[in-house]
Design a protein around this nucleic acid. Structure first.
Lengths: 231, 231
DNA sequence: AAAAGTTATTGACATAGATCAATTAATTTT
DNA sequence: AAAATTAATTGATCTATGTCAATAACTTTT
């Protein structure tokens, strides 16, 4: 029997693979002909909440965040690692504008695909459409988990979550250089940057992580997991 | 130019109409042949988080909530008014279990539709598939708003949001008998029931609402809206 | 390499709203 | 309709984090 997944603040969706695999050679060529590859520098805005969507964007190489804001506060919804799409909710003609903004964390390479082509392919290829439904569903499920986590977990648990997410899902090693500022981590874990600093220090003192400026090493993933579960 | 929508904690998705309208007569008949109408009493569980999905459910008459919980805490994701679907994320074979639970607020009538039929129709009718994508997108957008609201608005703003949502979207009059307990309202607006009581009392004293036990009347929607925006 | 600007760290303090406890009101069961 | 149960209200208290202010440590620009 499968263990019931607990909710985590983790910021990447569980969908694996690529919807593009479901396309025929002709269809792939069509996408090819209607897409361009663009380079973004670290910290550049990829799309703006409220703006018209004309392309769906595929992260080819890099890392970005998707967030909503009202001018005063900003809420990070999810991260975009390699292979993830941005702007999918707008394949519905009913939602022609981005419901969120996106910004790169590091220098990134993004493939822009004409959203009209996306819509056409959905209308002609049901396997592709099913795959889009899969992605939308997995995005929803990820958001539910993050929503629950940010609403009910205490700050230590949320921070532990994010450290584990970075190590397990994003960098896939327990030892990495953070391309994120303390403020970024604060945004990820839904707390103030001062609180992040204090709590990272505590984790460090307790031997759960080894932290030196931008360098982070997970020493005791089990304990972090326990804090995430309890917190 | 359209005014940019602000985020609200409102709990129903903006999708209007019915995906079933996109079906042919034959397809409608197919649904008809593979669905049953079920009556639920107030407070009954419609589906359980983690359980297998075998039917997609359509609220025919009544009101329900969709929520996730971990045994200790419960987070209300959205309300299900007439015409809304439950269990849509599971039309993907990749997600065969409910990611949430649902429970009726009042006596309700629900149409259960075999999920296999739903999947078949998605695979054969692209208009229908597009409509499902529309619904999933609008659900996501609603959740983003609620997520933002519960994370950043203060309690007064969240409560004002919910009162307006109940009056505008659910009961569609400024004068209604609440079928919800204080605890339900607390869950909707993400706070403790004691805080709900105190704040409703305050709104009442200030003449924004008229409240008498279960009966609620919105007296000053503009001020409530202002509190929602500011809070 | 000095100056200017930005980000990280630490400490002190404030507070929104949760929790706990007690009372009253409403509803359900006997 | 009395008793028992559940829900609503009120008051008192507590606390996890945010906010503000002051350095300290980096980074970038000159």
């Amino acid at each position: 029997m499968k263990k019931r997944n607990e909710f985590s603040g983790c910021t990447i969706s569980s969908y694996e693979g690529s919807c593009l695999d479901k396309l025929s050679e002709d269809e792939k060529q069509l996408i090819e002909n209607h897409s361009v590859k663009i380079k973004y520098k670290k910290g550049e805005v990829i799309c703006k909440q409220g703006g018209f969507v004309s392309q769906v964007m595929l992260m080819n190489k890099g890392l970005a965040k998707v967030y909503i804001d009202n001018g005063t506060n900003s809420l990070l919804l999810r991260m975009i690692p390699n292979g993830s799409l941005i702007g999918l909710s707008s394949v519905s003609e009913a939602y022609p504008t981005f419901p969120y903004s996106a910004m790169t964390y590091v220098d990134s390479e993004i493939i822009q695909i004409d959203v009209k082509i996306f819509r056409k392919l959905i209308a002609q290829n049901t396997e592709f459409a099913k795959e889009i439904i899969n992605i939308l569903s997995s995005n929803s499920i990820q958001i539910y988990g993050r929503f629950f986590c940010l609403t009910y977990k205490q700050a230590y648990g949320r921070l532990a979550d994010i450290i584990l997410c970075l190590s397990d899902k994003i960098f896939m090693k327990e030892n990495f250089n953070l391309p994120l500022s303390r403020k970024d981590i604060a945004e990820l874990s839904g707390m103030s940057s001062e609180t992040v600093v204090r709590m990272l220090k505590k984790f460090n003192e307790e031997g759960l992580i080894k932290m030196n400026g931008k360098h982070l090493e997970v020493l005791d993933a089990d304990s972090l997991q326990r804090i995430s579960d309890t917190g």
